[in-house]
């Protein structure tokens, strides 16, 4: 199941690329993409809501200022 989330304060494209790499390594995530221009994160996971805390944590690690809006 794929879910898309809007993000705020994602300021740097390289950070977006790093986040994407980090998210794809997470357990339970089949694939993830971070769209810097649309300011969106798309997560494909069996249960997107369950992996959200891990997704948030991984993103925050790269860019502490960013926020995921659910």
């Amino acid at each position: 199941m794929t879910k898309t989330y809007r993000v705020h304060n994602l300021d740097c494209a390289n950070c977006a690329a790093k986040m994407e790499r980090a998210l794809n390594k997470l357990d339970g995530v089949n694939s993830a993409s971070v769209n810097f221009f649309a300011q969106k994160i798309t997560v494909d996971a069996d249960d997107p809501d369950a992996v959200m805390p891990a997704v948030k944590k991984a993103c925050k690690k790269v860019e502490p200022d960013m926020e995921i809006v659910c």
């Binding site: 740097c12 494209a13 390289n14 690329a17 810097f36 221009f37």
Partner: peptide
């Protein structure tokens, strides 16, 4: 590598 990382997807 910012120039590349921004400009290609853009």
């Amino acid at each position: 590598p910012c120039a590349l990382v921004i400009s290609i997807p853009l």
